[in-house]
Amino acid sequence: MRALLLRYITFSVLSGYTFGQDNTELEKLYISDQSARQTQPINWEELREEDEARREHVLSILRNGDIQSARDYFHAAMIFQHGNSPEDIRLAHSFATIAATLDSSLENVNWLKAATWDRLLLNFDQPQWFGTQFVRDGDGNLTLYKMQPDVISDEQRTAWSVPTVSESLQLLEQRNNRN
């Protein structure tokens, strides 16, 4: 089913489909997705259920042909980025790539494209390229998920609005010291 949706998306983009106004319903789902991650402490089981409901809602919007603008694809990508399956992350990366293709100046769109790629690699237990994904170690501290050295330069990371590896490590140290 999701493979069929991915083909539909690709066909829509490549066929010169006219992209319209931002979808306000999708924007509300995005805001809900982001707000749910600001509440502390997070009830992870409840959040997983809410995330699944949001992803299903996005799919129904997609089926209706109502994901049209770069911002719509960005919002859909962020919602699917919080999925747990490789299929969810593949869709997130596809949505992010389409959003970046439609409007590369959209804030955080290149970062999201990098993050979804890294998340997909993490899902397949492969080293990430950009350094956007973190995991908890045995002591509960965040650590940078394993990386493939020298695939992406710090200049490329900066161009994609991704922190350099040293910046990410500094942020991790600060965050872990707060906890």
Results as ranks from 00 to 15, higher is better:
6 L>T: 14
7 R>A: 13
7 R>C: 12
9 I>W: 04
9 I>G: 00
9 I>T: 01
10 T>W: 11
10 T>S: 12
12 S>I: 10
13 V>F: 13
15 S>I: 10
16 G>W: 05
16 G>A: 11
17 Y>T: 11
18 T>I: 11
21 Q>G: 07
23 N>S: 14
23 N>L: 03
24 T>P: 09
26 L>I: 04
28 K>Q: 11
29 L>K: 02
31 I>C: 11
35 S>K: 12
39 T>G: 05
39 T>M: 05
41 P>D: 10
42 I>V: 15
42 I>R: 13
45 E>H: 09
53 A>Y: 10
55 R>L: 04
57 H>D: 04
57 H>W: 01
58 V>R: 01
59 L>D: 04
59 L>Y: 02
60 S>W: 06
63 R>N: 11
65 G>P: 06
66 D>T: 08
68 Q>Y: 04
69 S>E: 04
71 R>S: 11
73 Y>H: 08
77 A>D: 06
77 A>S: 15
78 M>G: 01
79 I>M: 08
79 I>D: 00
80 F>A: 01
83 G>P: 00
85 S>E: 05
86 P>M: 08
86 P>E: 07
87 E>F: 08
90 R>G: 02
92 A>S: 15
95 F>I: 06
95 F>E: 01
96 A>F: 00
101 T>P: 03
103 D>Y: 06
107 E>K: 15
108 N>H: 12
110 N>E: 12
112 L>F: 07
113 K>V: 03
113 K>F: 12
113 K>Q: 15
114 A>C: 12
114 A>R: 00
115 A>N: 04
118 D>W: 02
118 D>Q: 06
118 D>A: 11
120 L>D: 01
121 L>G: 03
128 Q>M: 04
130 F>C: 05
131 G>W: 01
131 G>A: 08
133 Q>N: 09
134 F>R: 03
134 F>E: 08
134 F>M: 14
136 R>N: 15
139 D>K: 14
140 G>Q: 10
143 T>H: 07
146 K>F: 03
147 M>R: 12
148 Q>R: 07
149 P>I: 09
150 D>S: 09
150 D>C: 02
151 V>Y: 05
151 V>R: 07
152 I>E: 01
153 S>K: 08
154 D>H: 08
155 E>R: 13
158 T>W: 02
158 T>A: 13
162 V>I: 08
162 V>M: 02
162 V>C: 05
162 V>R: 00
162 V>F: 00
163 P>Q: 05
163 P>C: 07
164 T>S: 15
164 T>C: 09
166 S>D: 13
166 S>A: 09
169 L>Y: 06
170 Q>W: 10
172 L>A: 05
174 Q>S: 10
176 N>K: 07
176 N>H: 10
